[in-house]
Amino acid sequence: MKIRIPATSANLGPGFDSCGIALSQYLSIEVLENAAEWKIIHSLGSDIPSDATNLLIQTALKVAPDLSPKVLKMTSDIPLARGLGSSSSVIVGGIELANRLGNLNLSQKDKVQIATEMEGHPDNVAPAICGDFVVASYVDGEVHSVKHHFPMCDVIAFIPDMQLLTSESRSVLPTSIPYKEAVQASSIANVMIAAILNGNLPLAGRMMEKDRWHEAYRKNLVPHLEQIRLLSHEMGLYGAFLSGAGPTVLILSPEEKTDEMVRKLGKLSISATIHVLSIDQEGIQVF
């Protein structure tokens, strides 16, 4: 059995802790054989545990405590601590591992609920499970989510070589904002979502760049965002925004302009990896 979970990008600017998309980078987990104790074969670095202390196994055992140990193989092309849902993909993978090995028959709604309770918010885990574009809320312990088709475009990921932990990026956010500003922030998010539903990427992109919830507070941690946004405007692309808590920036691009934008991004003085991704429409897959 092989489980594949997509990378995700949360927020899309003003959809803070609520909106997310699934992307074409993946975490894969393969069940190899029975074992006396849990073992994970991977080449993801010494910081990632290879035993039952791994987040994947910890998650699976929270969902199904009586699972018998296995030897697993884990591979991933989702970069760690870059705002592309690396930890969320592991949590989602652990839930699916428990679901399959424990014969739990969890529904998609069940999985989103469990994953959100573990993660604290649904913006990454919901699209990892469902695929495509998902809008979700987590209020009074209950998760509500809606999946919709995201309009066709290339998604250019500018991934700086530096890590930025979510905890650090969250620490710069205010504990409250004025009521009038919250109303404006909410209206921007509403128009952004409606534009996506209508397939209007030019308008959606403009709204993504008008976020009032988080990007302004994080700009000192991600100075490259403004550079990339200016470049995106010069090129006539749809929009650029922080992926999750950063430092990755995503740029929504018409296919015919992508190659030139990638070349220009490559000339910036910031050490980074650049990937051209697409929207993953399926979410978690089991083979």
Rank of each mutant, 00 (worst) to 15 (best):
R82L: 05
T75Q: 14
S145F: 15
E119V: 10
E96L: 14
M118G: 02
V90F: 00
L101F: 08
M74T: 03
S89E: 02
S137V: 14
D154Y: 04
S89K: 03
P151W: 02
K147C: 07
M74Y: 02
T116Y: 05
V155T: 10
G83S: 01
D110E: 13
G94V: 07
K111F: 06
A157I: 13
Y138A: 01
F158N: 10
H149C: 10
N105R: 14
R100V: 15
L97A: 12
P151N: 03
L80A: 14
G131N: 11
G102R: 08
C153M: 02
H148C: 03
S89G: 02
V134H: 01
H149Q: 14
L101Y: 09
L97K: 01
L72C: 01
V135M: 12
G83R: 01
L101I: 12
I91N: 00
G93P: 01
G93H: 00
H149R: 14
T75Y: 01
R100A: 10
P151L: 01
V134I: 12
G93V: 00
D123S: 14
V125T: 12
V92H: 00
H149V: 13
L84V: 02
E119P: 03
N124R: 07
I95Q: 01
V146D: 06
I78C: 12
A98R: 01
A128F: 09
S88L: 08
H148G: 05
E117F: 03
I114E: 00
F150T: 08
D140P: 01
E142R: 14
S89A: 15
E117Y: 03
D123C: 13
V92S: 00
S107L: 06
G93A: 15
K111H: 07
I129W: 04
S145Q: 12
S88E: 08
L104E: 10
S145E: 11
N103M: 07
L106A: 13
L84H: 04
L104R: 08
E117R: 15
